[in-house]
C-alpha cells in the first residue's frame, strides 16, 4: 500500500510551551481536540499520509516539547527535516517575540539550508488576541516563511497549514528527490557519539 507514495517527508513542529503544537498535530492526524492536553515530555511522533495535487506523501511528524527544560533533547530531531512548522499563540505576545530564538535554533541545528518553514499563529478562536495577523504576516515575509493562522480547537487552518507546507516542499527542487544522496552526506551527530553510560559527562556544580 506504500507503493503509490511519492516520498516520505520529515516535518518538525517547534515553538514555545503551550502554544498548541501537540493540539495542531492531534487535530491533523487524529482529528481530535483535548483542551486539557498535558505538556509534551521529550518528543512525540506521528505518521500520516497526505495527498497534495495528486501526489501522495508520507509525513513523519515530530512534535517537540516546548518547555525549556526539555530543550536539550530537541537538537537531534532537527536532522534531516525537510519542513518545519513554527507555532506561536496569538493571545500571548511573548510567544511571538521569542520566535527569533526559535529561528536561531533552527538555523543552528538544521542540516540543510532550503528547509521549508511555515509560521502558524494558533488559537485564533480565542478573544484576547495580542498579535495582529499583519504582524505575523510581516514577520513571516521578513524571514521568507509561509504563514497561516489557525485554531486546533475549531479546525481552522490546520489541514491547510500542513498541505501548503508539503506542497511547497514538493515544489522545491532537490529538497526531496536527492534525499538518498543527502543522507550519505549528513553530519555525524548520532546520539551514540556522546559518551553513553559513563560518568564522563558529570561536571561540578559551580
Amino acid at each position: 500500500m506504500d507503493e503509490d507514495v511519492l516520498t516520505t517527508l520529515k516535518i518538525l513542529i517547534i515553538g514555545e510551551s503551550g502554544v498548541g503544537k501537540s493540539s495542531l498535530l492531534l487535530r491533523f492526524t487524529d482529528d481530535t481536540f483535548d483542551p486539557e492536553l498535558a505538556a509534551t515530555i521529550g518528543v512525540d511522533f506521528k505518521v500520516k499520509t497526505i495527498a497534495v495535487d495528486g501526489n501522495k506523501a508520507k509525513l513523519a511528524i515530530w512534535d517537540t516539547a516546548g518547555q525549556e527544560r526539555f530543550r536539550t533533547l530537541t537538537p537531534s530531531y532537527y536532522r534531516g527535516a525537510q519542513g518545519v512548522i513554527l507555532v506561536y499563540d496569538v493571545t500571548r505576545r511573548d510567544t511571538f517575540v521569542r520566535l527569533d530564538n526559535w529561528l536561531n535554533e533552527l538555523e543552528t541545528y538544521c542540516t540543510r539550508n532550503d528547509i521549508v518553514k511555515m509560521l502558524v499563529g494558533n488559537k485564533i478562536d480565542k478573544e484576547n488576541r495580542e498579535v495582529d495577523r499583519n504582524e505575523g504576516l510581516k514577520f513571516a515575509r521578513k524571514h521568507s516563511m509561509l504563514f497561516i493562522e489557525s485554531s486546533a480547537k475549531t479546525r481552522d487552518g490546520v489541514q491547510c497549514a500542513f498541505e501548503e507546507l508539503v506542497e511547497k516542499i514538493i515544489q522545491t527542487p532537490g529538497l526531496w528527490e536527492s534525499e538518498s544522496q543527502n543522507s550519505k552526506l549528513r553530519l555525524s551527530d548520532s546520539p551514540d557519539a556522546r559518551g553513553g553510560g559513563s560518568c564522563g559527562g558529570y561536571c561540578s556544580m559551580l
Binding site: I41, L73, P191, G196
Partner: peptide
C-alpha cells in the same frame, strides 16, 4: 518527568 533529559538512552 525530565528523565529523558538526564538519561540519554531513555527514548531508545
Amino acid at each position: 518527568e525530565e528523565v529523558p533529559v538526564y538519561v540519554p538512552k531513555w527514548l531508545k
